[in-house]
Simulated assay, not measured.
Amino acid sequence: MLELRPNCECCDRDLPPESTDARICTFECTFCRPCVDGPLKGVCPNCGGNFAPRPIRPAGKLARFPASGRRVTRATCP
Protein backbone atom coordinates (compact mmCIF):
# COMPACT_ATOMS: atom_id res chain seq x y z
CA MET A 1 0.00 0.00 0.00
CA LEU A 2 1.28 3.47 -0.86
CA GLU A 3 2.36 5.72 2.01
CA LEU A 4 0.80 8.83 0.46
CA ARG A 5 3.53 11.09 1.79
CA PRO A 6 2.27 14.53 2.79
CA ASN A 7 4.74 16.83 1.00
CA CYS A 8 6.98 17.53 -1.96
CA GLU A 9 10.54 16.41 -1.21
CA CYS A 10 11.89 19.40 -3.16
CA CYS A 11 9.87 22.46 -2.10
CA ASP A 12 8.03 20.99 0.93
CA ARG A 13 4.64 21.95 -0.54
CA ASP A 14 1.74 20.17 1.16
CA LEU A 15 0.34 17.29 -0.90
CA PRO A 16 -2.80 15.99 0.83
CA PRO A 17 -4.09 12.52 -0.11
CA GLU A 18 -6.57 14.00 -2.61
CA SER A 19 -3.96 16.14 -4.41
CA THR A 20 -3.87 15.79 -8.18
CA ASP A 21 -0.47 17.55 -8.22
CA ALA A 22 1.37 14.71 -6.41
CA ARG A 23 3.86 12.70 -8.48
CA ILE A 24 5.70 9.53 -7.42
CA CYS A 25 8.45 7.33 -8.81
CA THR A 26 8.77 3.55 -8.42
CA PHE A 27 10.37 4.01 -4.99
CA GLU A 28 7.50 6.31 -3.96
CA CYS A 29 9.68 9.41 -3.85
CA THR A 30 7.07 12.18 -3.78
CA PHE A 31 7.21 15.54 -5.54
CA CYS A 32 4.72 18.15 -6.71
CA ARG A 33 3.87 18.62 -10.39
CA PRO A 34 5.53 22.07 -10.62
CA CYS A 35 8.86 20.68 -9.33
CA VAL A 36 8.66 17.58 -11.57
CA ASP A 37 7.85 19.67 -14.66
CA GLY A 38 10.33 22.41 -13.72
CA PRO A 39 13.66 21.92 -11.97
CA LEU A 40 13.53 18.10 -11.91
CA LYS A 41 12.76 17.84 -15.65
CA GLY A 42 10.79 14.62 -15.11
CA VAL A 43 13.66 12.69 -13.52
CA CYS A 44 13.69 11.62 -9.87
CA PRO A 45 16.82 13.04 -8.19
CA ASN A 46 16.89 10.13 -5.74
CA CYS A 47 16.72 7.13 -8.07
CA GLY A 48 16.91 8.50 -11.62
CA GLY A 49 13.49 7.09 -12.53
CA ASN A 50 10.49 8.78 -14.07
CA PHE A 51 7.29 9.97 -12.40
CA ALA A 52 3.61 9.11 -12.57
CA PRO A 53 0.60 10.80 -10.99
CA ARG A 54 0.06 9.49 -7.46
CA PRO A 55 -3.23 7.58 -7.17
CA ILE A 56 -5.91 9.10 -4.96
CA ARG A 57 -7.10 6.86 -2.15
CA PRO A 58 -10.89 7.03 -1.83
CA ALA A 59 -11.98 9.10 1.17
CA GLY A 60 -13.84 6.10 2.63
CA LYS A 61 -10.58 4.11 2.78
CA LEU A 62 -8.51 6.88 4.42
CA ALA A 63 -10.08 6.27 7.83
CA ARG A 64 -8.90 2.66 7.86
CA PHE A 65 -5.76 3.20 5.78
CA PRO A 66 -4.55 6.75 6.60
CA ALA A 67 -1.95 8.68 4.67
CA SER A 68 1.54 9.00 6.11
CA GLY A 69 2.37 11.98 8.31
CA ARG A 70 6.15 11.56 7.81
CA ARG A 71 7.56 14.49 5.87
CA VAL A 72 10.59 13.78 3.69
CA THR A 73 12.72 16.57 2.24
CA ARG A 74 15.98 16.66 0.31
CA ALA A 75 18.89 18.75 1.56
CA THR A 76 19.33 20.13 -1.96
CA CYS A 77 17.02 20.24 -4.93
CA PRO A 78 17.96 21.23 -8.47
Rank of each mutant, 00 (worst) to 15 (best):
M1W: 10
M1S: 15
M1A: 14
L2Q: 13
E3F: 12
E3Q: 13
L4G: 06
L4E: 12
L4V: 06
R5A: 11
R5H: 11
R5F: 11
R5L: 13
P6N: 04
P6K: 00
P6S: 05
N7H: 05
C8K: 01
C8N: 04
E9S: 14
E9P: 00
C10M: 04
C11N: 07
C11Y: 07
C11G: 09
D12S: 15
R13T: 15
R13Y: 03
R13K: 11
D14I: 03
D14Y: 00
D14R: 09
P16I: 00
P16H: 01
P16G: 07
P17K: 02
P17H: 09
P17I: 01
P17N: 12
E18M: 04
D21T: 08
D21M: 06
D21P: 01
D21W: 02
A22H: 03
A22I: 02
C25S: 07
T26N: 13
F27H: 15
F27R: 14
E28A: 13
T30P: 05
F31N: 03
F31K: 01
F31P: 06
R33W: 06
R33F: 06
R33Q: 14
R33P: 01
P34C: 08
P34K: 05
P34G: 09
P34Q: 07
P34R: 04
C35R: 07
C35W: 10
C35P: 15
C35M: 08
D37E: 15
D37F: 04
D37H: 08
G38C: 04
P39H: 07
P39Q: 09
L40H: 09
L40S: 09
L40N: 09
L40D: 11
L40K: 04
K41T: 08
K41Y: 02
G42I: 01
G42R: 01
V43H: 05
V43L: 05
C44V: 00
C44Y: 02
P45A: 01
P45V: 01
N46S: 13
C47H: 09
G48R: 02
G49I: 00
G49H: 06
G49Y: 02
N50D: 13
N50Y: 03
N50C: 05
A52I: 12
P53A: 13
P53Y: 07
R54S: 09
R54A: 15
R54T: 06
R54D: 10
P55D: 08
P55C: 05
P55K: 04
R57K: 07
R57A: 09
P58D: 12
P58Y: 00
A59D: 14
A59S: 13
A59F: 05
G60E: 14
G60D: 13
K61W: 10
L62I: 03
L62P: 00
L62T: 11
L62Y: 00
L62Q: 11
A63E: 15
R64A: 14
R64F: 11
R64D: 14
P66C: 02
A67E: 11
G69Q: 13
G69V: 14
R71K: 14
R71T: 07
V72A: 08
V72T: 15
T73I: 11
T73S: 11
T73K: 10
T73R: 12
T73Q: 10
R74F: 15
R74W: 14
R74P: 00
R74K: 04
R74T: 04
A75V: 14
T76D: 10
T76V: 10
C77G: 15
C77Y: 08
